[in-house]
Every structure is written in C-alpha cells, then in structure tokens.
Amino acid sequence: MSNDPKIWLAAIMSLGIYSYLFKENPFFRVCEHLYLGLSLAHLAVMGWTNVRDLGLTPLKNGQWSALIPVVLGVLLFARFIPGMAWLSRYSLAYLVGVAAAVTITGVIDAGIITQIRGAIIPLNSLNAVFTLIANVTAISVFFFIIGSRGENGSVLGNKTFQKLIDKSALVGRFILMVSFGAVFGTTIMARLGLFIPRLKFLFGDWIHLIPPVK
C-alpha cells in the first residue's frame, strides 16, 4: 500500500465519490461539494486569466478597443440584477452572432460539400455499390418535405415517387439502426475507458495490487 499522502488524498476523494453507488451519505456529500467548489473555482480562474491577458492588460496599455468585449463580458452578469437582466442579451447576441457566422464559414465546405464529394465513389466493387445504396437510402430518411401530407391527407407530389422514397427510407432506417448500433458499441467502450483508470489508480497506485506501467 502507498505511503504517499498525495495518493491517499486522491484515494479518499475517489472512495468518497464512489460511496454514492451504495447510497447517498455524508462522506459523498462532503466530497461532492468539495469537487463542485474546486471545479467552478478552476473555471473562474481560467476565465479570469483570459480576461486579464486579453482584456485588462491591453486596456492598461492603452488599447481602448478592448473595452468593447470587457463591457460585453461584464454585461453577462446583469442577469443577476433584477430589472437589468435584459442588458445581458447584448452579450448573448454578440456570442450567438459570432458563433453563427463562424459556423457558416466552416460548415458549408466541411459539412456539406466535402461530405457529398466523399459519397461519390467509383462503382468498381460490390462494397462500392452497397455504399452508394446506403448513402442514398440513409439520406432519403430525412426527406421530410416530399414525405409530408396535405391538409386532406393526400401525399404532396407524385405518388409513385412518394412510394419509392418511402421504400428507400425503410432501407435507410435499417442503415441508421446499424450506425446507432455502432455508436452504442463504442459508447460502452468509452465508458469503460473512464472506469478502468480509476480501478488502476485505486488497486495499482494506492493498494499496489496492479503492476505499474512505465
């Protein structure tokens, strides 16, 4: 067993959090509140360093343009002041406006054009034919407009075409389920990937039951 007080501290925190799996208890709640306090303080400190380096230091050096983001940032906290909460909308509008524009500049090429280009492949093998069918049918699942119905229940557009889309969407749904199955499999892998290191810490670094790695 480890003699290092740092390891003991970390082990006590880990056990405190895991004790919740048995049932909620004071040991867990102490660790939980400690963790919550530390994590939010860490976020605030990292935020502060950004504000200091990018906002306040340039202001001190006479770069007055930095006043704009600093004011917008301060306005975010107006939401805590009754009657002045609407002021924080300016900051949110700024954040949302920039994010929306940045999204457009990146997504059109990477998310649409390149994806369509990637789907167009030479049909020189059975797998390539299957890929084409899978691509087309999976996309047809999202053809909501063609599949929509008028007020009297009639299908909008050509009925034969509609039937074709319906059949294609059925195959597409199968393809989507296969994909969701893959996501499910990898999700379990990811979750185990979080748990195993904790076991290695508790039974390796702390109790020395698991041999160490380099």
């Binding site: 990292m46 950004n50 504000v51 983001p69 940032g73 906290f77």
Partner: peptide, 13 residues
C-alpha cells in the same frame, strides 16, 4: 469573443 466567453465561464460559479 474569447474575452466575452471567458466572462461566461464565471457565470456558473
């Protein structure tokens, strides 16, 4: 936007 987003980090705290 980096600066405004940095302020937002403290909101939760």
């Amino acid at each position: 936007q980096n600066i405004v987003a940095a302020f937002a980090l403290a909101l939760g705290g």
